[in-house]
Design a protein around this nucleic acid. Structure first.
Lengths: 364, 364
DNA sequence: TTTTTTCTTGAAAGCGCTTTCATAAAATGA
DNA sequence: TCATTTTATGAAAGCGCTTTCAAGAAAAAA
């Protein structure tokens, strides 16, 4: 209702020339509600525009008396500063661009929340885009966030299109590639080696007695990190056992059902399989349910390991063993790096390789 | 690395006066990389600034020939328009503010993705903030998004602080309260009645033979919608059976474990309980696991219903029955309403009450 | 052909701020 | 006391765009 009226006012407003005085409204303007500007605060508190600006941004440069008067005026007028105008004038913005593959993944959701909370507490707004694991969408998102004057960019992983990289490079802002690391980086990379995760799980299974391994993965060709985990596992497993694991893969990501289907196919093909790695927890849970249906004893007949340490892994029966990437650490280090760069505390990119954690619960 | 250099350049830049010519750089400026502006595109393509602006925003107003030259120039210069400057000049922005309680909830994650995808395809950027179910944070988020000139605001639910509402009202932008409805709205509300969900489940249980009900909830006092579901269930259950259900509630949200703990407490107190409503699926799954541990047969001994239709409900064993809110419909209607308002197709707020779906799987 | 209408284009005035730069007032030192 | 430094404030020049407004060119009508 209220907004109805307001839209009309706004549209209306455009049809008439702007009153240059800004203050003394013409008689026919009298009922028009104009958005409160800094100038209005200045007028009400009897100071100049620049003083109000200083009172907001560098209060220590304004005498206590005026500061108080300005604060009062802002409150009475319920002034909300226009950050676009501010950023434009200052040639720098308090906005951070963040690009993740999807929000429908608790790992990314967690990272997003941690990051936005930290940036928030430092006066930065985080602009988020998601790519659905598409490089093309990533490029668009990058362009979009840059066009909104992001002061820094955070992307997921190390795999980007050439154009995206160029755009980032010419934008001349700090860029962090988080979640995944390799030996190089556009600028800064903070994460884990997903290949190592796969290798690690394979060698763990073998060391603890497994003779025949299986692998269920999803979104190969889309989710490059899941693919790296799968590849690491396959290579390491074959190397250690001489036999390649039976590998079932699905197009779609995150369908728990597929975990069960994958388990079925593996056991059909290689009934002697005694340990299966799932490239994510959702799949693993699906596998676990299928074990119950088939009366396969976990971990006695078959051991299972997931990835992600999602909330389910500590609720399933038996409790799911999984690999836990250091979400909080990634988020904190990323945020801190960005803030340091923005504050001039740091001036160089860096590559930070973090450790993952193998959480052995009840599935082996 | 690249960014290191760039930061220095930018900082450096501020220490010297801006070259007013903008084009013929002084001799000592020669190596300075300045961000490409629309003026640069204009110069390279031999047209005026205004023509470039039109070529971008209203291409039909520019002759084919010039349009092509301008496109070429933009490509060679890899021009990225500055949307802040654009929004400021146009006095309207292509940014939508979206406030949700948390991203760590697949329902909201889904809605966020749907909304951003739709807005994206219409050239709008979605600015997202989360509140952790705190009204105070919601107020801050509102102020922040408004200060970034959001052209419309989307909030979750109907419960806000007075200040938030005032701010929204004076901002004079369309506002949609989604996910939850009541008889009123700040402007527009699109969602389901969570109270009805609770009542519905209770009456379903009773109609299908339940004699003693139980309820496990979380975050009462924080998540007002979960509370509404719980209250609806309690009231309806007591009304229908004459006995109040045993009600176990937890502070923290979304811990599956608590679902199991809750089940234990309920069965301890009222061993004859034959149906339990969980205010979310995560809790329900935890309850299901606990049933397995305790050898409680579901649904023969005990029936279970969750809320949310999370991905787990179709992977658990037995498959979880649950109530499914119409995520996609909420997202689509919300996005469409906002776009219609912004395009002047609609000018009034509305209240849209949607139906939820009861998905009866294997838990009763 | 001349007149009228429609299309294209450019000049210029801002959008609401930040940040020099200059100045007046106050504090400090000699 | 006067010269010097420090502090507090305001005026004004933009930030990079959009959008009138006016004018010239082209098309249509007379």
């Amino acid at each position: 209702m209220a907004a109805l009226v307001s839209r009309e006012i706004i549209l209306d407003d455009k049809t008439k020339t702007h009153d240059p005085s800004g203050n003394a409204l013409g008689p026919d303007h009298s009922e028009r509600t104009r958005r409160v500007r800094m100038q209005d605060v200045a007028r009400l508190s009897g100071v100049s525009l620049s003083t109000v600006s200083r009172a907001i941004n560098t209060p220590e440069q304004v005498s206590g008396e005026l500061r108080r008067r300005i604060d009062d005026a802002m409150r009475t007028l319920t002034y909300v500063p226009n950050r676009m105008a501010g950023s434009l004038a200052a040639k720098k913005s308090r906005a951070i661009g963040l690009i993740i593959p999807t929000m429908r993944n608790s790992a990314f959701a967690t990272i997003v929340e941690e990051l936005t909370d930290i940036f928030d507490s430092h006066g930065y707004q985080t602009f988020i885009s998601h790519t659905d694991y598409s490089l093309e969408k990533e490029l668009k998102a990058t362009a979009s966030l840059l066009s909104w004057s992001a002061a820094a960019m955070i992307l997921t992983g190390r795999h980007h299109s050439r154009q995206t990289v160029n755009m980032l490079l010419t934008a001349e802002v700090p860029v962090v590639e988080m979640w995944d690391v390799s030996d190089q980086a556009i600028d800064t990379a903070i994460g884990i080696s997903h290949d190592d995760v796969g290798r690690y799980v394979a060698s763990y299974f073998v060391k603890s007695g497994a003779k025949r391994l299986g692998l269920v993965s999803a979104a190969i060709g889309q989710d490059i990190r899941a693919t790296q985990r799968a590849n690491g596992f396959l290579r390491s497993a074959e190397q250690l056992l001489g036999v390649p694991p039976v590998h079932v893969t699905f197009e779609e990501r995150g369908r728990a059902k597929n975990g069960g289907v994958g388990l079925g196919r593996i056991l059909d093909e290689a009934p002697d399989t005694d340990a299966i790695f799932y490239t994510n927890d959702t799949l693993a849970i699906g596998g676990l349910f299928e074990c119950q249906r088939r009366c396969v004893k976990v971990p006695d007949d078959l051991r299972i390991c997931g990835f992600g340490d999602s909330i389910l892994s500590e609720a399933s029966n038996p409790l799911l063993s999984t690999v836990r990437p250091p979400h909080e650490q990634i988020a904190h280090l990323t945020a801190q790096h960005v803030l340091d760069r923005l504050n001039g505390v740091k001036s160089e990119g860096e590559i930070i390789r973090l450790d993952f954690q193998h959480i052995i619960r009840e599935t082996g």
